[in-house]
Amino acid sequence: MANPILQVENLVKRYGDVEAVRGVSFSVEEGEVFGLLGPNGAGKTSTVEVLEGLRVPDSGRISVCGLDPQKNAIALKNEIGATLQATSLPDKLRVGEAIRLFAGFYKRTRNVDDLLERFGLEEKRNAFYNQLSGGQKQRLALAMALVNDPRVLFFDEPTAGLDPQVRREIYDIIEELKREKKTIVLTTHYIEEAEKLCDRVAIVDHGKVIATGTPRELKQRSEHTSRIEARFAKPASKETLKGLDGVVDAREVDGEYVLHCQKTAPAIVALVKHLEAENNELVSLEISTPSLEDVFIELTGRRLRD
């Protein structure tokens, strides 16, 4: 950690008796895309909203661009840009006006026309906010987050509730920002998003960071080295599959068997032998390295989107 632009130490945030964030620590390097991955209610939004200065932490040390979000609120707001989860704009505000309005709040600003063009909003320049689709609203939110050319960007669940095609559009935008070496902190409960976009990921559950690393590191840290997805001619018993040499866990999803293996080669041999003995046949077989989803299940015992 040579020179982190953002540091969080032991952050705690309570709402009444509920402890939403219970001692979260992490740091982000300049130019890095850092993901907070976890299920809804894990404390991701509370964490980023404390970093943005929108919420007051109960305890913990926070530094964003060398500033304390509580003590240097205005200075911090000039350095950051963000998209929020629960937010909106006045219905009768036009797209172009919204960007120009927010540009008026900062000393350092980007060109409004460039932003409209970059986010594909030129045609919608004169549309009212309440006439926009979900994807257009999100692109406007991203454009507004960039209006002050911020050093750190926070995207809270940038693709939640959007359809797959729009989600890919948003990914393209974030990947472009990544190429420009923008520092980005994003929260998500989509594995795909974290794997695709993030340089490093912190897995968050019940208000705590339970693992941090690059997606690859996290997957390697997993005790399962591989995952076998197979279809058989006849149904097989999960329990027997679980007992095979090298296999740690076996599940059945829609007629497909997913085996988590510690040792891949012996597991395959054992599986083929078992099928032969049972007079069963292998219809298809696919071997893959574990996904972040597998890592999450392994760490928490739950699926991410339960």
């Binding site: 707001k77 929020l84 900062y106 507004m144």
Partner: peptide
């Protein structure tokens, strides 16, 4: 209305007092 709809918090994200 602006408070209820989360419009005010978007302004708060900017240096608006």
């Amino acid at each position: 209305t602006w408070r209820e709809q989360g419009i005010l918090r978007r302004f708060r994200l900017a240096p608006v007092s």
